[in-house]
């Protein structure tokens, strides 16, 4: 029999043969990217591969995931929606504003977005939050996975505009997209410093941990705006 354990609101660990991360499927019967469906006590769950999702890896690295069933989320770097689909499962009464810059990725994402009422797709540059200011409301969480050299700046710009005073930022920093040659450790120190100091009021870093063994050269950061 499958055993189930709650890790964080809307996020479960299912033990059936092996331990797996999972979220309750908001769109029952449908598979998004080839993940497995598992039914436990009448509820259908979708397994969540931490190697394909920075957020999934953060859950397993014991990050506090500040998501509630009615959270409003601004998701920067939605790509084809692998992780967005799980966020959409978790905040089933909330909203996921999903920003993606590449039309090609958005093409794959549209099918998913049209089946889930809490996803609001936005084809725009996450570095220009003004271009979607007429759509996005203040949010409880900004999740950012954009693989751009100016990640810290993008996070700051979006936080100033959209993050509630008591909201959180979850950020995945990819060392290789900032500098291919420098050592990841130095880059992480540098980026964290930027998050803390480079803008008003600055972020207060709550957790900063690498995502090994699920993602190489990635740093996960949980932060909130300074008082």
């Amino acid at each position: 029999m499958a055993e189930i354990r709650l890790l964080s609101e809307g996020i479960f660990e299912i033990t059936k043969d092996k331990r797996q991360l999972a979220t309750p499927n908001l769109d029952p019967g449908k598979v998004v990217y080839g993940e497995k469906l598992v039914s436990v006590e009448g509820t259908e769950y979708r397994t969540w591969d931490p190697r394909r999702s920075k957020l999934g890896a953060m859950v397993l690295k014991k990050f506090n995931i500040p998501l509630r069933k009615d959270s409003k989320v601004l998701y920067l770097g939605a790509a084809s929606g692998t992780t967005v689909s799980h966020v959409s499962d978790i905040v089933f009464e909330g909203a996921v504003y999903s920003v993606e810059f590449a039309p090609r990725s958005m093409r794959d994402f549209v099918g998913l977005a049209s089946r889930r009422k809490n996803i609001f797709p936005i084809l725009a540059d996450a570095g220009k939050p003004d271009s979607y200011a007429h759509i996005v409301e203040p949010v409880d969480l900004i999740f950012q996975d954009v693989a751009q050299p100016n990640q810290a700046e993008i996070a700051a710009r979006n936080a100033i505009r959209f993050l509630k005073r008591d909201g959180y930022l979850l950020l995945s920093i990819k060392a290789r997209s900032i500098d291919t040659a420098a050592s990841p450790k130095e880059i992480f120190t540098e980026e964290v410093k930027k998050l803390e100091k480079a803008f008003e009021p600055g972020f207060e870093i709550l957790t900063a941990r690498d995502l090994v063994p699920y993602h190489e050269d990635h740093l996960g950061v949980l932060a909130k705006l300074k008082e």
């Binding site: 977005a113 049209s114 609001f120 797709p121």
Partner: peptide, 8 residues
């Protein structure tokens, strides 16, 4: 939801 989808 409908509007963002159509925009995209």
């Amino acid at each position: 939801h409908e509007v963002t989808l159509d925009t995209v």
